[in-house]
Nucleic acid binder design. Sequence first.
RNA 1: GCCGGGAUGGCGGAAUUGGUAGACGCGGCGGACUCAAAAUCCGUUGGUGGCGACACCGUGUGGGUUCAAGUCCCUCUCCCGGCACCA
Length: 876
Amino acid sequence: MYPCEFVFAGERRVVTDIAYHPAQVEAEAQQYWEEHQSFRATEEPGRAKFYCLSMFPYPSGRLHMGHVRNYTIGDVISRYQRMRGMNVLQPMGWDAFGLPAENAAMANGVPPAKWTYDNIAYMRRQLRSLGFAIDWSRELATCSPEYYRWNQWLFLAMREKGIAYKTTGSVNWDPVDQTVLANEQVIDGRGWRTGAGGEKREIPMYYLRITDYAPELLAALGELPGWPERVRTMQANWIGRSEGLEIDFPVEDSAERLRIFTTRPDTLYGVTYMAIAPEHPLALVAARSNLELRVFLDECRHQGVTEAALETAEKRGMPTGFHAIHPLTGRRVPIWVANFVLMSYGTGAVMSVPAHDQRDWEFARRFGLPIHEVIRPRDGALPDLDTGAFTDYGMCINSGPFDGLDFAAAFAAIATHLEGLSAGRRRTNWRLRDWGISRQRYWGCPIPLVHCDHCGEVPVPEDQLPVLLPENLLPDGSGSPLAKLRSFYDCECPQCGKPARRETDTMDTFVDSSWYFLRYACADQHQRMLDERAAYWLPVDQYIGGIEHAILHLLYSRFWTRVMRDLGLVRLDEPFRNLLTQGMVLNDIFCRRPASGRIEYFNPADVRVENDEKGRRVSAVLLGDGLPVESVGIGTMSKSRNNGVDPNRLVEEYGADTARLFIMFAAPPEQSLEWSDEGVQGAFRFLRRLWRAVHQHAAGGVPGEVAVDALDSRQAALRRALHQAIVKVTDDVGRRYTFNTAIAAVMELLNEIGRFEIQADADRAVVQEALESVVLMLSPIVPHICHRLWHVLGHARAVVDERWPEVDQTALASDSVEIVVQVNGKVRGRISVPAAAREDEVKAAALAEENVNRHVAGKPVRRVIVVPGKLVNVVV
RNA sequence: GCCGGGAUGGCGGAAUUGGUAGACGCGGCGGACUCAAAAUCCGUUGGUGGCGACACCGUGUGGGUUCAAGUCCCUCUCCCGGCACCA
């Protein structure tokens, strides 16, 4: 063993046992950060700030590996930026309202509040054990009245401005959770959380006018270069802008006009029928005197959005008996009800052009409606309309005065013409719908309204906010307990003082998460929602979270920020400057399929994998009974497949640093990460090697400064390797966020240091510099071990307060460079030439190389390409 | 169907602007230490041939551009993600 003397917390210590004990090392470092409040962020006007935010967790009970990955990425970025001298804020909080708390309450008989706060306490301990550089003084939970009172306050401000409004509409109803879902929360016709097949219901509820912001939300996507292309595309598709014409078709024998929306006005002369939604007013009128139609409309209503209906996608329809008059040709076309027309998009009615729209074509075929060709391809080809519609842009034919025009010209000409007749107008349509926020749930933020028989709906006055949510209720699964709690809903009207009824709906929990990142700036501000500190910290410089929030949370937050801007609360358009979407954490899946009975899954930790002599996996056996199990691929860690890894066990067995190192090393952050116990052991081995290398070196005492002007070639080479590594790691961590390659570069450097033979004192000085840089560069990733090793290297100051290493440009310079020589593009040799060699000198040296010479073998040299400092290619 | 991303050793992955394919790690193989095992250390590890120097093949498929292609262009196959009667 190597006794080792080092300075720790200001005093000299001698250590003889240099085994790496992570538990002890980590407790020591965490205690230091705690005592020194190392991560307390304070506003320093004039000093550059860096706000690094990871998506806050739902307090579900315990952390999973996805959390650990998310927060480790954020922590590495935070700690790096801090070492670059930035004033860093990294806060943490809890997305604490939501349905799992109510479900747990029913299952265990514990009120949601207690369940939630217990979970928060447990998960906070877990986060602390991982050593994240979080400013805990700013911690917030969305279920605390101090937080949600501002939801209520802002809701009333929005209501005042007309941004929040109430209406009765057809909504998506989740029968399992017994609540309304926003459009964004329905996935494949099912509730995003329960997976239950939804149905439509007519319910009065509050909406936020996100559609008013659609143009801005779409346009600004172009000004978010720090967001992944993928997320911007998903949001753009979701907002769904389309430009077209609104056209009025007179209805025969009626004063009514049928208004439709089309993006293909160039096909207007090809209209052979009209199609309207089953909920369209004209359909309802027609149904009054038509029993068959009434039955059909009823069927359509119940078809709903079930999976079966979506899969068959059967085109069904029925004539209304009404006819429309074509505004340009005067032709009479039938009006049909069709199940594929959506009342919620455009005007709930479409003009049907079966020759040039595949869906119209299928419908026309099915019901024997005429197909009238009005578009031909420019190249003169004749599309076969018996096999399908021709849907590309082309040239107008059979279109009267518009014949020969292409799409753009026909669009413009027809628009102008119809505008002249007051029969149509240009219009932009959006797929985005307003955001319905009312939920018939208990564990959420109460909507601060009172219903009075005399005054109508009355907002709760500001001095009576917040409307407190009772915390001790136990839901029973049949609707909201608030609606059954007299002491909650019985109240006085704030206006007339007479008995009134309090609103019992709560807000969608996505409201809570739409502005929490603003509140971190001033979580202790009790007089206002935000104060001037928000202007210092915002926008978030780096946001990190799962891709599953690409639409919901990120779109709502962008909207909410703009609303607050328009209400004068922030000077900010976009809340998140850079966005990193981390990949999923995957693991092996092992199971047995008994001939009868259900599949049994086994945790990979309990399975031993056997390899053949080439290292290929051949079989897997259960450690418990030694019998084989089936390997059925890899998938996300989940309870149902029993392939999760418990962060607690990992920290106990290897320490937080090993967990952090493995997670950052196994894959780049945006990619999915495959768990590997061997990989975790590899990370642990590396830390042990690092520990030993530093202690062995430090046992010789602290050497003097490196004499930069008196280095021999070996010393210069190690120093060059060191500073090349600093260049690479700085770029990888600071710009590219490829932490895996940064770690690889440090590993390579440590290998090089290990090979470096210590002969003289000057050698030890170079090694000291190299090890110091290694510890500094690794400290954002494995902060605990680096905290100790920095002291071992002779420093009294804590590594957390040190600066990132600087590159010494002179160390990078080299007298000679290695050049690859190719013959006809194939590598045939390597030569070493002086760095300052001229091109013709390099060329000559290349041609003189033995193996190169052999391949040229007297053939005429046609060309020689020289890439300075890299490569010579001889073409023969 | 539309949009986006991807396919590289036994495995995770690297190759950043067209310039040495396989960095780093895992696994495997061989060896040292040990009574033995674990741990640790050293060597080796894309395939084929050769004692070797070396040669040939090799980044999903087929073609193209180039002195030079994992990287650029076209074709096809497969995988992952999102959207989907949006008029």
